[in-house]
């Protein structure tokens, strides 16, 4: 009741803030129930992500030119960027997992950037999406570590360079930090994207007051530029942390 009252009061005033409404999942073709198979705005924007990946990585590179066209050179740049990242951070043997990491990078980059279009829906602002991405990385890397190294993988938690009595304490800390990884990994991405979009919406709400609207529109422009940067940086950070975790699984020696 209290929340309803607050909500009602908000509606009553001239300022209307609904910064979270842009994240609502709704069915595209009528109805209100969201079943697992329902075609929703999530489906639409994920399909657009696939289309964007197709356009960049398949259509733009279809010429296979020695001297690349504009689109092809962007595709090659993305390929080289992620390839070098995997090679530098995870080592040569990490390159076997390059397609998975490149898939993650491409999905996050395009979901973030498409989410910056006006009236769009940002799939990566949902914990459901980022938690699945982060858990896939976490479980994949943990299983890979045990498959490759067996129980030696647990040496990751045993800091043998530390003085003896300190080691159990450090092991507890290491284990906690290991299990916090997927949490921070997922919440960082969704939190950053969501925060930026909500801030833009709040500034947009201020634009209703004529006196402040120029300032608010300038602020939206500034935030939008920052969000474009954040869209790429968060994709980069997610990918590079994946590479770091992969390195831990491939070379668990501490």
């Amino acid at each position: 009741m209290a929340t309803e009252a607050a909500h009602g009061a908000e509606e009553g005033s001239s300022l209307v803030f609904h910064p979270m409404d842009q994240f609502i999942v709704k069915p595209l073709f009528g109805g209100t129930d969201v079943h697992w198979y329902t075609i929703t705005n999530v489906t639409l924007w994920m399909a657009l992500t696939i289309v964007a990946v197709l356009l960049l990585m398949v259509l733009a590179t279809s010429g296979k030119k020695q001297v690349p066209s504009r689109g092809q050179s962007i595709a090659e740049m993305a390929y080289g960027f992620v390839y070098k990242m995997v090679e530098d951070v995870s080592g040569k043997d990490g390159l076997r997992y390059f397609p998975y990491i490149f898939t993650l990078f491409m999905f996050i980059v395009f979901a973030n950037v498409l989410g910056l279009l006006p009236m769009s829906f940002t799939t990566t602002s949902h914990f459901a999406v980022t938690v699945v991405l982060a858990l896939a990385v976490f479980l994949g890397v943990t299983i890979l570590g045990f498959v490759l190294h067996g129980t030696h993988f647990l040496g990751l938690f045993w800091v043998s360079s530390a003085p003896g009595p300190l080691r159990p304490v450090l092991a507890v800390i290491e284990i906690i930090s290991y299990f916090v990884r997927p949490v921070s990994h997922s919440i960082r991405l969704a939190g950053n994207v969501m925060a930026g979009h909500a801030v833009i919406k709040v500034f947009a709400g201020f634009a209703a007051i004529a006196a402040v609207s120029p300032v608010s529109i300038l602020a939206i422009v500034g935030m939008y530029g920052l969000e474009v940067l954040v869209a790429f940086i968060q994709a980069y950070v997610f990918t590079i942390l994946t590479c770091v975790y992969l390195k831990d699984a491939l070379h668990p020696a501490h």
Binding site: V25, V42, T103, L133
Partner: peptide, 14 residues
């Protein structure tokens, strides 16, 4: 719903 479509998307992109 989101998890289902996410997995579909990731598999297709992969």
């Amino acid at each position: 719903n989101q998890i289902f479509w996410l997995i579909v998307t990731l598999v297709v992109i992969y």
